[in-house]
Amino acid sequence: MSILQVKNITKRYTEHTALSDVSLSIPKGSVYGLLGPNGAGKTTLIRVITRITMPDQGSILFDGRPITDNDIYNIGYLPEERGLYKKMKVGEQAIFFARLKGLSRKEAIARLKEWFIRFGIQDWWERKVEDLSKGMAQKLQFITTVLHRPKLLIFDEPFSGFDPINANLLKQEILRLRDEGATVIFSTHNMSSVEEICDHITLINRSRNILSGSVSELRHRFGDDIYALTFAGQSQSVKELLESMGEVLSLSEGEAGAPSELRFRLNARHTMREAISAINERVEIRSLSEVIPSMNDIFIRAVEGTL
């Protein structure tokens, strides 16, 4: 079941095309990564989804129906550039945004207090926004985005400007929101965060959707059947053995008793079972695993067109 379906969206500006024929489907209850290099069209796509800009072609379905202006109240959007009124007090500002999203003042205050405690910023209620550090302002903005519990959350680069501790806190909160039933889209070029929290991704480059799928499926699809073997013993004999069965990509000798590591690929005539028993006769196997490419590798390879 998809909460949001983007169908063949095209958006042209006078000088360039920001999106050409982009389609994607976002499963309900997932964390969906929208990846792509700078200027690929991610923000334009988000703006089309939040109805800030209208597409030239294509349609968007929200919960199976064509999206309407009222659906944006079910979307929480955290833009990449943080926007807060600098001169307003933190608490007042948070209440203002919450009321705009349809919460009563009382309800807003109750929920805000809870979030402020969770993020450890309850002392900031009476301070002015201009006194906040960048990370603090971001926390505040994150809270105002999720406070009304929208079905769909869109975060544009949510981790930029956070230290590792706070980034981790935010990550936990995003996952918690997903577990409570929200669907999260987030746009980023920070690949490590994608591996940790995204279930699905779409990679946009030069206005096109060049890759979509679940993270684990993609990583296996992009695996090149390369295996990493760590072992103790005669590395030369293992190397000769594996060269006869396929191809050795690298070998790093373990120094002072540490295990050596070797990366290899088998040719079609040999199975892994054969290889393991042959290796086992020569050296002591410590570990053997498939080398799964990182999202970073996939990202770079996809963008450079080496797919």
Partner: peptide
């Protein structure tokens, strides 16, 4: 960019 935030509501 306050507007970007508000426009979703």
């Amino acid at each position: 960019r306050v507007l970007d935030v508000m426009v979703s509501s």
